[in-house]
Design a protein around this nucleic acid. Sequence first.
DNA 1: ACCATTGTCCCGCATTATGGGACAAATAGA
DNA 2: TCTATTTGTCCCATAATGCGGGACAATGGT
Lengths: 250, 250
Amino acid sequence: MRPVGLALAVVDRVAELQPIGASDLARHIALPKATVHRLLLALESYGWLERDAGPRPRWSLTVKPIGIGGRAIERKSGLRMAALSVMDSLRHETGETVHLGLLHGDKMLLIERIDGIKSVGIFLPVGTSWDLTWSSSGRAILANLSADEQREFLRTPRYRRRSETDVIPVGELMAELALVRERGFAISVGIAGANSSSIGAAIFDRHGAPFAGLSLSGAVDRLREPELMALAPLLVEAARRISMGMALQV
Amino acid sequence: MRPVGLALAVVDRVAELQPIGASDLARHIALPKATVHRLLLALESYGWLERDAGPRPRWSLTVKPIGIGGRAIERKSGLRMAALSVMDSLRHETGETVHLGLLHGDKMLLIERIDGIKSVGIFLPVGTSWDLTWSSSGRAILANLSADEQREFLRTPRYRRRSETDVIPVGELMAELALVRERGFAISVGIAGANSSSIGAAIFDRHGAPFAGLSLSGAVDRLREPELMALAPLLVEAARRISMGMALQV
DNA sequence: ACCATTGTCCCGCATTATGGGACAAATAGA
DNA sequence: TCTATTTGTCCCATAATGCGGGACAATGGT
């Protein structure tokens, strides 16, 4: 099934680099130009890719993967359904924006967002993903992994970055994670340069493994540590209710 | 590139029917069991599909397409970026939920949602798609297509359904579309049995062709025709601003 | 005006997908 | 409980198809 693998690799890279030309793309995935070209034409004929008109076409994704991704979320494990009403209550109780993310390999994937009453100014698009340590809910998941899994993650410096260049020492991160685990939530004040703060908690499957995260986010000048701490009980309770709802399903 | 086409067909159908067994799936896409089985294994190895453990595995999508779809939206035509701030203003002015949809073939695809201050209770997931006539923004697009394109759509009864069974007579729909075009917006009170009402307007590319739609939605007991009419100027102005923003790009 | 780069296509070779069929295991039915 | 049906998995000979080097013209940067 080699062509399938190559085609999917092309889709993946085009998603990342679009709009991109054929030769450039061929260089990125280290394949002969002719092969990439053939794959692009095939993917176009199946409605997954499109190119702008012109002598040097640039390729982009069509909306097809969006629809497919949407359906994937919908039927996936029932998490979204189980979480929605809880998320809505939470946003009404707190006025802040609620995010629901899914653990996906070594990333956190944003599945659903319910906007707060109070404005934040930034709206993360569903489908965004980022490193686990970057978000409060990601660190809440990290803190609740088994010791082995945790060590596995922390081994690579990639997963210990606070920003592009700033790597967190293992000891410091371990200490924070221990605290997070004990409290049941993680906080971020003014994360990653953006002017938003957040507090996150993990959601567990029926075997007790963390697989998703729930977070509350708001403008950093409104939410400093004391305010975040005050929100914690509501958030933790909401995450617990979602975990319970998931456990009841099939 | 036959295997690629088959693999994508499998992904598409699995998204629709998940969780589904191999034999069942083979019947749906009219392919030999052996072929489908091989494709499933391949797609699993590339991380696009997964199966639950057990003697009769059921296949589902992984979150991979979600991430890809998300990136597709992000870089796609800049629509989302151009629309966000306008959508945010709109929700603060009106308190209602704002939806941004993209015309995709004969469907409307939900790209972004900003939740209103007032509760609706239902949250359409990004990635949902539906027939053009079902949503107010879809009908706003329909109304602004060229006469030829419009005739093309209305020829098939599929696109004239108010519900599963209720088909709108061509004359009636044409009359409504003419009115929508003149006013610049379409309204739906209590659409499709759900308890929400909405008002929608079209967004145009720089050639003047409608390619996306903006809508305001709220609970039907709060938004009847008079209230919707009162919201119209704000919505139409917002859609116009997004169209202008798009025209300035590139 | 030059020249490196790009998009596109061709074609002989060899790799690879194909799908009927066989089998065991699991479910549905009685 | 026993039987009939369906399901998941695998094998294999045959035919089909993807492969990628290379050639060419069009393009655009300098």
